[in-house]
Protein backbone atom coordinates (compact mmCIF):
# COMPACT_ATOMS: atom_id res chain seq x y z
CA UNK A 1 0.00 0.00 0.00
CA UNK A 2 2.86 2.36 0.85
CA UNK A 3 4.29 1.67 -2.61
CA UNK A 4 1.01 2.65 -4.22
CA UNK A 5 0.85 5.98 -2.38
CA UNK A 6 4.46 6.60 -3.23
CA UNK A 7 3.66 6.11 -6.91
CA UNK A 8 0.81 8.62 -6.58
CA UNK A 9 3.04 11.23 -4.93
CA UNK A 10 5.84 10.67 -7.43
CA UNK A 11 3.19 11.16 -10.11
CA UNK A 12 2.10 14.43 -8.50
CA UNK A 13 5.74 15.58 -8.50
CA UNK A 14 6.28 14.99 -12.24
CA UNK A 15 2.67 16.00 -12.86
CA UNK A 16 3.51 19.40 -11.37
CA UNK A 17 6.19 19.81 -14.04
CA UNK A 18 3.73 18.85 -16.78
CA UNK A 19 1.12 21.12 -15.24
CA UNK A 20 3.51 24.10 -15.23
CA UNK A 21 4.49 23.55 -18.83
CA UNK A 22 0.87 22.93 -19.82
CA UNK A 23 -0.02 26.25 -18.20
CA UNK A 24 2.72 27.96 -20.21
CA UNK A 25 1.34 26.37 -23.39
CA UNK A 26 -2.18 27.56 -22.60
CA UNK A 27 -1.00 31.10 -21.88
CA UNK A 28 0.68 31.33 -25.28
CA UNK A 29 -2.22 29.56 -26.95
CA UNK A 30 -4.63 32.17 -25.63
CA UNK A 31 -2.51 34.95 -27.09
CA UNK A 32 -1.61 33.38 -30.44
CA UNK A 33 -4.13 30.54 -30.91
CA UNK A 34 -1.21 28.24 -31.58
CA UNK A 35 0.83 25.68 -29.71
CA UNK A 36 4.26 27.03 -28.93
CA UNK A 37 6.37 24.04 -30.00
CA UNK A 38 9.42 25.85 -28.66
CA UNK A 39 8.10 25.97 -25.07
CA UNK A 40 10.21 22.95 -24.10
CA UNK A 41 13.38 24.34 -25.64
CA UNK A 42 12.77 27.69 -23.96
CA UNK A 43 12.66 25.85 -20.62
CA UNK A 44 15.80 23.90 -21.53
CA UNK A 45 17.62 27.12 -22.37
CA UNK A 46 16.57 28.52 -19.00
CA UNK A 47 17.89 25.44 -17.21
CA UNK A 48 21.22 25.94 -19.00
CA UNK A 49 21.27 29.56 -17.85
CA UNK A 50 20.81 28.38 -14.26
CA UNK A 51 23.55 25.80 -14.80
CA UNK A 52 25.94 28.47 -16.13
CA UNK A 53 25.21 30.70 -13.15
CA UNK A 54 25.86 27.87 -10.68
CA UNK A 55 29.06 26.84 -12.44
CA UNK A 56 30.28 30.41 -12.07
CA UNK A 57 29.64 30.23 -8.32
CA UNK A 58 26.16 31.61 -7.75
CA UNK A 59 24.36 29.59 -5.03
CA UNK A 60 21.32 27.51 -6.07
CA UNK A 61 18.48 29.80 -5.02
CA UNK A 62 20.26 32.90 -6.32
CA UNK A 63 20.70 31.20 -9.68
CA UNK A 64 17.07 30.10 -9.54
CA UNK A 65 15.82 33.68 -9.00
CA UNK A 66 18.08 35.23 -11.63
CA UNK A 67 17.07 32.56 -14.14
CA UNK A 68 13.36 33.22 -13.59
CA UNK A 69 13.87 36.96 -14.14
CA UNK A 70 16.09 36.48 -17.20
CA UNK A 71 13.68 33.97 -18.69
CA UNK A 72 10.81 36.41 -18.21
CA UNK A 73 12.78 39.08 -20.08
CA UNK A 74 13.73 36.67 -22.87
CA UNK A 75 10.13 35.52 -23.26
CA UNK A 76 8.90 39.11 -23.55
CA UNK A 77 11.71 39.81 -26.01
CA UNK A 78 10.69 36.86 -28.20
CA UNK A 79 7.15 38.29 -28.36
CA UNK A 80 8.42 41.76 -29.28
CA UNK A 81 10.96 40.70 -31.88
CA UNK A 82 9.48 37.55 -33.44
CA UNK A 83 5.74 37.55 -32.86
CA UNK A 84 4.72 41.22 -32.95
CA UNK A 85 5.71 41.75 -36.60
CA UNK A 86 3.74 38.63 -37.50
CA UNK A 87 0.49 39.62 -35.78
CA UNK A 88 -1.46 39.29 -39.04
CA UNK A 89 0.62 36.54 -40.64
CA UNK A 90 -1.03 33.32 -41.85
CA UNK A 91 -1.15 30.30 -39.50
CA UNK A 92 1.55 28.38 -41.30
CA UNK A 93 4.03 31.24 -40.92
CA UNK A 94 3.49 31.25 -37.18
CA UNK A 95 3.94 27.49 -36.92
CA UNK A 96 7.15 27.90 -38.91
CA UNK A 97 8.36 30.54 -36.48
CA UNK A 98 7.71 28.29 -33.48
CA UNK A 99 9.56 25.39 -35.08
CA UNK A 100 12.39 27.71 -36.09
CA UNK A 101 12.62 29.00 -32.53
CA UNK A 102 12.77 25.41 -31.27
CA UNK A 103 15.65 24.54 -33.60
CA UNK A 104 17.54 27.74 -32.88
CA UNK A 105 17.32 27.38 -29.10
CA UNK A 106 18.23 23.70 -29.30
CA UNK A 107 21.29 24.44 -31.43
CA UNK A 108 22.21 27.40 -29.24
CA UNK A 109 22.24 25.23 -26.09
CA UNK A 110 24.48 22.71 -27.82
CA UNK A 111 26.73 25.36 -29.28
CA UNK A 112 27.25 27.28 -26.03
CA UNK A 113 27.30 24.36 -23.57
CA UNK A 114 28.02 21.40 -25.93
CA UNK A 115 25.83 18.33 -26.36
CA UNK A 116 27.22 16.16 -23.55
CA UNK A 117 24.77 15.27 -20.80
CA UNK A 118 25.40 17.17 -17.57
CA UNK A 119 24.23 16.57 -14.03
CA UNK A 120 22.04 19.32 -12.58
CA UNK A 121 21.90 19.88 -8.82
CA UNK A 122 18.74 19.56 -6.78
CA UNK A 123 18.51 21.72 -3.64
CA UNK A 124 16.36 19.11 -1.94
CA UNK A 125 18.71 16.10 -1.80
CA UNK A 126 17.10 12.67 -2.18
CA UNK A 127 16.42 11.48 1.35
CA UNK A 128 13.39 9.25 1.86
CA UNK A 129 10.79 10.97 4.04
CA UNK A 130 7.76 9.71 6.01
CA UNK A 131 9.03 6.15 6.01
CA UNK A 132 9.66 6.04 2.27
CA UNK A 133 6.32 7.53 1.28
CA UNK A 134 8.00 10.34 -0.61
CA UNK A 135 11.55 11.49 -1.32
CA UNK A 136 12.78 14.93 -0.36
CA UNK A 137 13.36 15.71 -4.06
CA UNK A 138 9.76 14.87 -4.90
CA UNK A 139 8.38 16.81 -1.97
CA UNK A 140 10.54 19.84 -2.83
CA UNK A 141 9.41 19.76 -6.45
CA UNK A 142 5.78 19.49 -5.39
CA UNK A 143 6.21 22.45 -3.01
CA UNK A 144 7.91 24.67 -5.59
CA UNK A 145 5.39 23.97 -8.35
CA UNK A 146 2.42 24.39 -5.98
CA UNK A 147 3.70 27.73 -4.70
CA UNK A 148 4.34 28.91 -8.24
CA UNK A 149 0.92 27.84 -9.53
CA UNK A 150 -0.70 29.50 -6.53
CA UNK A 151 1.16 32.76 -7.17
CA UNK A 152 0.17 32.73 -10.84
CA UNK A 153 -3.44 32.03 -9.92
CA UNK A 154 -3.48 34.87 -7.38
CA UNK A 155 -1.93 37.23 -9.92
CA UNK A 156 -4.61 36.52 -12.54
CA UNK A 157 -7.42 36.41 -10.03
CA UNK A 158 -6.70 39.40 -7.79
CA UNK A 159 -4.63 41.99 -9.62
CA UNK A 160 -5.72 44.63 -12.12
CA UNK A 161 -2.90 43.62 -14.45
CA UNK A 162 -3.95 39.98 -14.25
CA UNK A 163 -7.52 40.93 -15.10
CA UNK A 164 -6.31 42.98 -18.07
CA UNK A 165 -4.30 39.99 -19.32
CA UNK A 166 -7.34 37.75 -19.07
CA UNK A 167 -9.40 40.36 -20.91
CA UNK A 168 -6.86 40.46 -23.74
CA UNK A 169 -6.92 36.66 -23.99
CA UNK A 170 -10.71 36.64 -24.36
CA UNK A 171 -11.26 39.74 -26.45
CA UNK A 172 -8.35 41.88 -27.64
CA UNK A 173 -10.56 44.30 -29.58
CA UNK A 174 -12.73 45.19 -26.59
CA UNK A 175 -9.62 45.39 -24.44
CA UNK A 176 -8.27 48.17 -26.64
CA UNK A 177 -11.60 49.98 -26.33
CA UNK A 178 -11.19 50.19 -22.55
CA UNK A 179 -7.66 51.51 -22.95
CA UNK A 180 -5.61 48.36 -22.28
CA UNK A 181 -2.25 48.29 -24.08
CA UNK A 182 -2.73 44.94 -25.73
CA UNK A 183 0.82 44.69 -27.07
CA UNK A 184 2.30 45.13 -23.60
CA UNK A 185 -0.04 42.47 -22.19
CA UNK A 186 1.00 39.97 -24.87
CA UNK A 187 4.68 40.55 -24.10
CA UNK A 188 3.92 40.13 -20.40
CA UNK A 189 2.12 36.86 -21.16
CA UNK A 190 5.13 35.50 -23.04
CA UNK A 191 7.38 36.60 -20.21
CA UNK A 192 5.25 34.81 -17.62
CA UNK A 193 5.02 31.66 -19.73
CA UNK A 194 8.80 31.63 -20.15
CA UNK A 195 9.31 32.14 -16.40
CA UNK A 196 6.90 29.32 -15.52
CA UNK A 197 8.67 27.09 -18.06
CA UNK A 198 12.02 28.01 -16.52
CA UNK A 199 10.90 26.77 -13.11
CA UNK A 200 9.64 23.54 -14.68
CA UNK A 201 12.97 23.12 -16.49
CA UNK A 202 15.02 23.61 -13.33
CA UNK A 203 12.80 21.17 -11.39
CA UNK A 204 13.01 18.38 -13.97
CA UNK A 205 16.68 18.81 -14.91
CA UNK A 206 18.03 16.89 -11.85
CA UNK A 207 15.82 13.93 -12.82
CA UNK A 208 16.41 13.73 -16.58
CA UNK A 209 19.86 15.42 -16.57
CA UNK A 210 20.74 18.48 -18.56
CA UNK A 211 20.98 18.10 -22.33
CA UNK A 212 19.60 20.12 -25.24
CA UNK A 213 16.82 17.59 -25.89
CA UNK A 214 15.81 17.00 -22.28
CA UNK A 215 12.39 18.64 -22.67
CA UNK A 216 11.11 17.00 -25.85
CA UNK A 217 9.40 14.10 -24.06
CA UNK A 218 8.28 16.31 -21.18
CA UNK A 219 6.62 18.76 -23.57
CA UNK A 220 4.67 15.89 -25.11
CA UNK A 221 3.25 14.97 -21.70
CA UNK A 222 2.52 18.63 -20.96
CA UNK A 223 0.73 18.99 -24.28
CA UNK A 224 -1.27 15.86 -23.52
CA UNK A 225 -2.16 17.36 -20.13
CA UNK A 226 -3.27 20.64 -21.71
CA UNK A 227 -5.45 18.79 -24.22
CA UNK A 228 -6.89 16.57 -21.51
CA UNK A 229 -7.88 19.52 -19.31
CA UNK A 230 -8.84 21.92 -22.09
CA UNK A 231 -6.49 24.06 -24.14
CA UNK A 232 -8.53 27.19 -23.47
CA UNK A 233 -8.71 26.73 -19.72
CA UNK A 234 -5.67 27.30 -17.48
CA UNK A 235 -7.23 25.40 -14.56
CA UNK A 236 -8.00 22.53 -16.88
CA UNK A 237 -4.48 22.46 -18.24
CA UNK A 238 -2.98 22.37 -14.74
CA UNK A 239 -5.38 19.64 -13.64
CA UNK A 240 -4.65 17.74 -16.86
CA UNK A 241 -0.91 17.99 -16.26
CA UNK A 242 -1.23 16.52 -12.77
CA UNK A 243 -3.54 13.75 -14.02
CA UNK A 244 -1.13 12.78 -16.77
CA UNK A 245 1.70 12.61 -14.23
CA UNK A 246 -0.28 10.35 -11.90
CA UNK A 247 -1.69 8.12 -14.67
CA UNK A 248 1.78 7.74 -16.17
CA UNK A 249 3.36 6.78 -12.87
CA UNK A 250 0.70 4.51 -11.44
CA UNK A 251 -0.02 2.89 -14.81
CA UNK A 252 3.69 2.41 -15.46
CA UNK A 253 4.21 0.76 -12.07
CA UNK A 254 1.14 -1.50 -11.91
CA UNK A 255 -0.50 -1.93 -15.29
CA UNK A 256 1.72 -1.80 -18.33
CA UNK A 257 5.32 -1.33 -17.23
CA UNK A 258 7.52 1.65 -17.91
CA UNK A 259 7.97 1.00 -21.65
CA UNK A 260 4.28 1.47 -22.37
CA UNK A 261 3.42 4.19 -19.87
CA UNK A 262 3.44 6.95 -22.50
CA UNK A 263 1.09 4.90 -24.66
CA UNK A 264 -1.19 4.35 -21.69
CA UNK A 265 -1.31 8.07 -20.87
CA UNK A 266 -2.06 8.90 -24.51
CA UNK A 267 -4.76 6.23 -24.71
CA UNK A 268 -6.52 7.64 -21.65
CA UNK A 269 -6.39 11.10 -23.18
CA UNK A 270 -7.70 9.93 -26.55
CA UNK A 271 -10.58 8.27 -24.71
CA UNK A 272 -11.44 11.43 -22.75
CA UNK A 273 -11.27 13.59 -25.86
CA UNK A 274 -13.60 11.23 -27.71
CA UNK A 275 -16.19 11.79 -24.99
CA UNK A 276 -15.48 15.48 -24.51
CA UNK A 277 -13.53 17.05 -27.38
CA UNK A 278 -12.91 20.40 -25.64
CA UNK A 279 -11.18 18.65 -22.73
CA UNK A 280 -12.35 18.03 -19.17
CA UNK A 281 -12.74 21.72 -18.33
CA UNK A 282 -12.89 23.06 -21.89
CA UNK A 283 -14.92 26.15 -22.57
CA UNK A 284 -18.66 25.87 -22.40
CA UNK A 285 -20.10 29.34 -21.94
CA UNK A 286 -23.84 29.49 -21.51
CA UNK A 287 -25.11 32.29 -23.68
CA UNK A 288 -28.27 34.18 -24.48
CA UNK A 289 -28.81 36.82 -27.11
Amino acid sequence: MLGFWHQILAGVATGGIYASLALALVMIHQATHHINFAQGEMATFSAYLAYALMVSGVPYWGAFGITVVLSFALGALIERVLLRPLAHAPDLTLIGVFIGLLLILNALCGWIWDFTIKPFPSPFGSRPLLGGLVSSAELGTIAVTFVMLLLIWAFFRFTKLGLAMRAVAHNPESSRLVGIRVGAMLALGWGLAAAVGAVAGMMIAPVVFLDPNMMSGILLYAFAGALLGGLDNPFGAVLGGFLVGVIENVGGAYLVGTELKLSLALAVIAFVLMLKPSGLLGRAVASRV
Partner: peptide, 13 residues
Protein backbone atom coordinates in the same frame (compact mmCIF):
# COMPACT_ATOMS: atom_id res chain seq x y z
CA UNK B 1 -18.82 42.61 -23.67
CA UNK B 2 -16.25 40.26 -22.15
CA UNK B 3 -18.71 37.38 -22.16
CA UNK B 4 -16.53 34.89 -20.28
CA UNK B 5 -15.83 37.33 -17.45
CA UNK B 6 -18.19 38.35 -14.66
CA UNK B 7 -20.25 41.54 -14.63
CA UNK B 8 -17.99 42.85 -11.87
CA UNK B 9 -14.87 42.15 -13.94
CA UNK B 10 -16.41 43.84 -16.98
CA UNK B 11 -17.05 46.95 -14.89
CA UNK B 12 -13.54 46.89 -13.44
CA UNK B 13 -12.18 46.71 -16.98
Amino acid sequence: TFRELTVDENLRL
